[in-house]
Design a protein around this nucleic acid. Structure first.
Lengths: 183, 183
DNA sequence: CCTCCTTGGCTAATGGTATTAGCTTTTCAG
DNA sequence: CTGAAAAGCTAATACCATTAGCCAAGGAGG
C-alpha cells in the first residue's frame, strides 16, 4: 500500500475543500480523511484534534483574507484606501462564503489565528497614519472598520437582509459613514 | 413515575440554562435532557431535532434582545435613540455572552427566528422616519446600524480586540460615525 | 546492497452523540 | 369510569472523534 504523502498543510487543504463543498458545519474528520484517500485515524499523525483543524483552517482563511485586502489597498491612501479595504473584505467573503463562515466565533487563544487576523488588519495602520490618525485613535478606527465590514458580511451571509433594497448600496453607505470620520 | 411536565418552551428554557452555563457549543440533547430530569429521547415529544432546538433558542434570544433595545429607545429620538439602540444591543450581548453566541451563522429560513430578528430591528424605522429617513434610505441605515452593532459585539465576544485601547470608547466612536450620517 | 529505525499508514476498540422504533403509563375528555 | 391521546421510558442503530497498538514504507549509515 503506497503512502498518501500527507502533511499538516495537506490536511488543511483537504479540509478547505470539504468546507468549500458543503460548508464548515459539515467539516468532519471522516469527510476530510475520505477526501484525502486515507482512514480517519491516520489524520492524527498530522493534526491533534478536529478542534485544532478548525482553527488551522480559520488561520489559513485569515491569511487569504489578509492577502486580498493588502492587494486591494496598494497604491491607495486615505478614505479611498479604507473603502478599498472594506470592499475587498466583503468581496473575499462573497467569493468564498463557506470559508468565511469557518471563522470561529471564539478562537481567541490559537496563536496562528490571532497572528493572521492581526496581519490582515495591520495593513490599515500605515494608511491611517498617513491621514494623521495615530496611536489609540488608530486602534479605535481599525476596530470600527473591522466591526463594520465583518458585521455586514456576517449578516449578509446568514441571509439576514430580507428587505428588498440593494445590498451593495447599503454597504457603500456604511463605507461612507465609516470613512467620513477620517480627518 | 411522575411526569416531568415538559413543553417546547420548557425544553428551550432548559437549553438556555445549558447554554448559559457552558456556552452554545456544548448544547447537546443529552445535556438538556439531564438538566430537565428526563431521558434524551423524551425530548423528541416536544422538539423535532437538535438543529431545530438551536433555532428555537436563537429565536428566544432574538426576542429578548428585541425587548432590550425597544425598552432602551423609549422616549428618545434621532441620534440619541440610535445610540441608545446600539448601546442596548451591546449591553445585552455583554450581559449574556453565551446567549448572544447562540445566534446562528446561517439560519435564514426558520420563520420564528426571522420574525424575532426583524422585530428587534423594526423599532428603528419609526425613529428614522421621524428624522426624515424613509423608504429605501431607512433600510440602508438599519442595515448599517445592525452590521456595526452585531459586528462589534461578535468581535468583542471572540476576544478579537487584542490591542490595549478602551473598548467602550471604540464603540462610542463607531456609534458616532454611524449616527453622523443622520440628517 | 543490506539493515534499522523513524514515520505514516492501518485495523480494532471505546465512548459519546443524535435519532428511530416500539412499549408503557399517565392524564384528561366524555 | 373508560378509552384514547400524549408523554415518558428502554433498546437499538448509525455516525462521530479519539486512543491503542500493529505493520509496512522508505530513507540513513554501513
Amino acid at each position: 500500500m503506497p503512502r498518501a504523502g500527507l502533511s499538516p498543510d495537506a490536511v488543511v487543504d483537504a479540509a478547505l475543500e470539504v468546507t468549500d463543498a458543503n460548508g464548515p458545519e459539515t467539516l468532519t474528520l471522516a469527510a476530510v480523511a475520505s477526501h484525502a484517500g486515507v482512514a480517519t485515524p491516520s489524520l492524527y499523525k498530522h493534526i491533534s484534534s478536529l478542534a485544532e483543524l478548525r482553527l488551522m483552517v480559520a488561520a489559513r482563511v485569515a491569511n487569504q483574507l489578509g492577502d486580498a485586502v493588502t492587494a486591494a489597498v496598494l497604491g491607495l491612501g486615505g478614505a479611498k484606501a479604507v473603502a478599498a479595504f472594506m470592499r475587498a473584505w466583503r468581496r473575499y467573503a462573497l467569493d468564498h462564503p463557506p470559508r468565511y463562515r469557518s471563522i470561529p466565533q471564539s478562537g481567541g487563544d490559537y496563536a496562528p489565528w490571532v497572528e493572521a487576523s492581526q496581519r490582515s488588519l495591520g495593513v490599515l495602520f500605515p494608511i491611517l497614519d498617513a491621514c494623521g490618525v495615530t496611536g489609540v485613535d488608530a486602534v479605535h478606527m481599525v476596530r470600527g472598520i473591522r466591526a463594520a465590514a465583518h458585521g455586514f458580511v456576517v449578516v449578509q451571509l446568514s441571509e439576514g437582509f430580507q428587505l428588498g433594497a440593494d445590498v451593495d448600496e447599503s454597504y457603500e453607505r456604511l463605507i461612507a459613514a465609516v470613512t467620513a470620520s477620517l480627518p
